[in-house]
């Protein structure tokens, strides 16, 4: 049984001007412990795909048809309350711009601690601090005690992204969505964050959905690649297979 299955998923945005089809009958599945890169040009529906699975779409967007199945259980009709449960434990997400993804008015330690408290409400204050330090160590942040007191504006982009990843990991997720998680960072930091993803997969065994428009990122980190265009999934397969096909077809994205 696959960890996550998406069948015939169609999502539309209903705007005053009319209906906009963002996803058209997308189907794929995610295996335990794999890294799946979702690749495509800007606006092809990569982010909408992640957000529809997580039900984080704005009110004007509706799932028209299709099924989302987690470990054999259908979650398409889950209520907000049930989804909240799932978001805090099964799924997690890392965003494109770490500087805006963190709340500017809270120290990063507080923000990580909040995620820990939601996941493990029984922990004492001291145990929680310990867990925060553990998470910060896990994502490669040095001097956790000092860093925890800092505010997002005092961090570099790479460090901020590591904090976001620490928050995502607090939930001990089975699936991590990384929505363009390396795009806003400079090249060396991109490589470090990708290495971190690979390392985390080794340590925790979670699956990662790596959304990117950068073929280099996909080739370096992914096991399988899904190609998207105009809201449709045009191909899915092993990295070598897909890249060979792309070169063969000469329609490089």
């Amino acid at each position: 049984m696959d960890l996550l299955e998406v069948e015939n998923l169609s999502v539309s945005f209903y705007r005053p001007e009319g209906e906009i089809e963002a996803l058209k009958k997308v189907s794929f599945s995610l295996r335990e412990g794999e890294i799946l890169a979702v690749m495509g040009e800007t606006g092809c529906g990569k982010s909408v795909l992640c957000k529809s699975i997580l039900k984080l779409l704005p009110d004007i967007a509706k799932i028209k048809t299709g099924h989302i199945i987690v470990r054999g259980e259908e979650i398409t009709d889950y209520t907000e309350r049930q989804m909240r449960e799932l978001r805090g434990s099964f799924f997690s997400m890392v965003f494109q711009n770490p500087m805006t993804a963190l709340n500017p008015c809270m120290s990063v330690g507080e923000q990580i601690a909040e995620a820990v408290r939601l996941r493990q409400p029984g922990l004492s204050g001291k145990e929680r601090q310990q867990r925060v330090a553990e998470l910060m160590h896990l994502v490669g942040l040095d001097h956790p005690g000092e860093r925890a007191r800092q505010y997002p504006y005092q961090l570099s982009g790479g460090m901020a992204q590591r904090c976001v990843i620490a928050i995502a990991l607090a939930a001990q997720p089975s699936v991590l969505f990384a929505d363009e998680a390396t795009t806003a960072l400079d090249v060396t930091v991109q490589a470090q964050i990708l290495d971190l993803f690979l390392e985390l997969r080794e340590k925790t065994g979670m699956s990662i959905v790596l959304v990117t428009h950068n073929p280099g990122v996909a080739a370096r980190a992914a096991d399988r690649v899904a190609l998207m265009k105009n809201g449709e999934l045009t191909g899915i397969g092993d990295v070598e297979e897909i890249f060979e096909e792309i070169i063969h077809r000469q329609n490089f994205i």
Binding site: R81, G88, A101, A171
Partner: peptide, 26 residues
């Protein structure tokens, strides 16, 4: 509408909790 709201919701907070724990502060 800020980005950090999405991250806060990913933690498993409800819309109301995000509003008074995060947005109110801003």
């Amino acid at each position: 509408r800020a980005d950090y709201v999405l991250l806060a919701r990913m933690k498993g907070l409800s819309g109301k909790q995000v509003l008074y724990r995060h947005c109110l502060r801003g």
